[in-house]
């Protein structure tokens, strides 16, 4: 049984593509066959984060419009077996995607034996974002501990519950998961950042994981490698936990507390 996962957030720049890349790579490392699709037509970036930007020949829009078949457009990842990327088009506009066209690509991927199809949503709540979530079975809502991100996540949750295929057909609703990114425990401790419990409390979505703010995320994107592959880093370990929990494993949340400060910096710090 293949599952369609949308990674969405409403707000831009919170870590959707980073999360999509790491989730897809993590699931593929576990032995599943995974396709990750960039839905951000006109502003593609997944290819860059995954380091395959120079290997894009055909894209998602070409496949939807019948100009290429899936085999031609799927880019096989060079580091992880069973991981394939479907890039967005850089030149077309957003109307190039249609509900039927997207549905057909997803059905074809399922028929090809893909276990997971990860849909990397564009920011916003317009057509592109709605198409990315339409066929989803699972939703990963990426949120930063910051007011506008929390509000936009709540907005996108409303759309997940009302405008998806599952909502329209009366099937079981999309299962929602929260991934809190750019978390900074020091700032939470000093009362300057929303705590993870507060965000969970506000959004009322089960927590899948917390990814600490980390230089490694920037390093990984600079290098074009999903951060989950940088196994030593906190961010990678946080994403590995996300993958394990997503697959049903019970794991305690990590990276929620600040490193202890000495007495000196406690009094004279900052």
């Amino acid at each position: 049984m293949s599952r369609v996962i949308v990674v969405t957030s409403g707000k831009g720049g919170v870590g959707k593509t980073t999360t999509s890349a790491s989730l897809a790579a993590g699931l593929a490392k576990k032995g599943y066959k995974v396709a990750v699709i960039d839905f951000d037509v006109g502003l593609r970036n997944l290819d860059l984060i995954m380091g395959c930007e120079r290997r894009v020949v055909y894209d998602f829009v070409n496949v939807v419009q019948g100009e290429a078949n899936l085999k031609q457009a799927l880019i096989r990842d060079k580091r992880v077996d069973n991981l394939y990327i479907l890039a967005a088009s850089q030149t077309r506009d957003k109307d190039a995607l249609t509900e039927e066209g997207v549905g057909k690509v997803i059905d074809d991927l399922k028929a090809d034996g893909f276990d997971f199809i990860v849909c990397d949503s564009p920011a916003g709540i317009e057509k592109g974002a709605q198409l990315a979530l339409y066929y989803a079975d699972e939703a990963i809502v990426v949120t930063n501990p910051e007011v506008s991100s929390v509000r936009d996540s709540d907005r996108i949750l409303g759309i997940l519950q009302a405008k998806s295929r599952r909502a329209e057909s009366g099937d079981a609703p999309i299962s929602e998961h929260l991934v809190l990114t750019r978390y900074n425990p020091e700032r939470v401790d000093s009362g300057d950042m929303l705590a993870v419990d507060d965000v969970v409390d506000l959004l009322k979505v089960p927590l899948l994981g917390v990814v600490p703010e980390s230089q490694q995320v920037l390093n990984a994107s600079n290098a074009g490698e999903p951060v989950i592959l940088d196994e030593e880093s906190d961010a990678a370990q946080a994403y590995m936990d996300v993958v394990d929990r997503f697959l049903g494993e019970e794991k305690e949340h990590r990276f929620l507390t600040a490193e202890k400060k000495g007495l000196f910096s406690k009094f004279f710090g900052k």
Partner: peptide, 21 residues
């Protein structure tokens, strides 16, 4: 603290926006 201001404001705002929805 600013984090608790954020929480208070969001609680009111989200309740309101969910009602509208």
């Amino acid at each position: 603290k600013s984090a608790s201001m954020a929480k208070d404001r969001l609680q009111i705002l989200l309740a309101h926006e969910r009602g509208d929805r």
